[in-house]
C-alpha cells in the first residue's frame, strides 16, 4: 500500500463547553472513498472541517502531502483548499447571484484561470454531471438534485486530490441521492481523488470503500476483515 494521502492523529477540539473531538484519528489513502458515520452531534462535521483545514484543532496533527495543516498559515490553508481540496455540502453552497456555470467556474477563477478557459472547463463538468441544461440559470431556479450536481461539478473542477462531502445527499430523495453519489464516486475514481463522505444514510455510505465511526468525538476505526 502506498503512503497515506492524509493522516490525522490525536485531534482535540472544543467549542466553549462542548467537546467536539477527543483524540480523533483518521487515515485516507489515495483514491479511496471513506464514509464518516455517527449520530447527530457526534463530531462528524467538526472532524471533516478539521481534515479540510477549515477549522484548526486545539491539539493534534493533520498531515497532507507531508505538510501539517495544523501549523500552516491561514493563507496557505486557503490555497490548499482552493487547489487540492473540493467541497460538497448539504445545501446553500452556491453563490445565488452567479449562474450555475459561473459557480462551477468560480474555484478555477479563484485560482487565476482566465474566465473563458474556466467557463469552458466548467461546462465540461456540467455535461459530465448531466446538468448542462442549467448552465445559464441561477441556483435559485434549479432543483435540489440539479443544484447538488452543480456543487459536485464545482468540487471536481479543479481536479482536487481530496473531496470533502458533508451530507451531500441530505436534502435529496433516494433517486437523486443515488444519482449524485454515483456521479460523485465515479468522477472521483476517474480523477483519482479521495473522498471523505460524512453521512448518516447507510445506502449512501455503501458507496464508500471503508467507514469510520465517530462517537462523542472519538473515532472508531473498524477494520473488519473481509
Amino acid at each position: 500500500m502506498s503512503a497515506p494521502l492524509l493522516v490525522a492523529e490525536g485531534l482535540y477540539r472544543r467549542f466553549g463547553e462542548t467537546v467536539a473531538l477527543v483524540d480523533a484519528a483518521l487515515r485516507i489513502d489515495e483514491g479511496e472513498v471513506v464514509a464518516v458515520l455517527g449520530s447527530s452531534g457526534s463530531g462528524k462535521s467538526t472532524l471533516l472541517h478539521c481534515l479540510a483545514g477549515i477549522v484548526r484543532p486545539d491539539r493534534g496533527r493533520i498531515v497532507f502531502d507531508g505538510q501539517d495543516l495544523v501549523t500552516m498559515s491561514d493563507a496557505r490553508r486557503s490555497a490548499l483548499r482552493r487547489d487540492a481540496f473540493g467541497f460538497v455540502f448539504q445545501f446553500g453552497q452556491l453563490v445565488p447571484e452567479l449562474t450555475c456555470l459561473e459557480n462551477v467556474a468560480l474555484p478555477l477563477r479563484l485560482a487565476r484561470v482566465p474566465r473563458r478557459a474556466a467557463e469552458q472547463r466548467a461546462g465540461q463538468w456540467l455535461e459530465r454531471l448531466e446538468v448542462t441544461e442549467v448552465a445559464g440559470k441561477r441556483p435559485g431556479e434549479v432543483s435540489g438534485g440539479q443544484g447538488q450536481r452543480v456543487a459536485v461539478a464545482r468540487a471536481l473542477v479543479t481536479r482536487p486530490r481530496v473531496i470533502f462531502a458533508d451530507e451531500p445527499t441530505g436534502a435529496l430523495d433516494s433517486l437523486n441521492g443515488e444519482r449524485v453519489m454515483r456521479l460523485l464516486t465515479e468522477a472521483a475514481r476517474d480523477t483519482g481523488a479521495a473522498v471523505v463522505l460524512v453521512t448518516h444514510e447507510a445506502r449512501v455510505a455503501a458507496y464508500s470503500d471503508r467507514e469510520v465511526v465517530v462517537r462523542d468525538g472519538r473515532t472508531r476505526n473498524l477494520e473488519v476483515a473481509a
Binding site: H49, A52, I54, A75, S78, A79, L80, R81, R82, D83, F85, G86, F87, F89, G92, Q93, V95, L106, P107, L110, R154
Partner: peptide, 8 residues
C-alpha cells in the same frame, strides 16, 4: 462557505 473552498 466561500472561505471554506479557499476564497481569499
Amino acid at each position: 462557505m466561500l472561505v471554506a473552498v479557499g476564497t481569499r
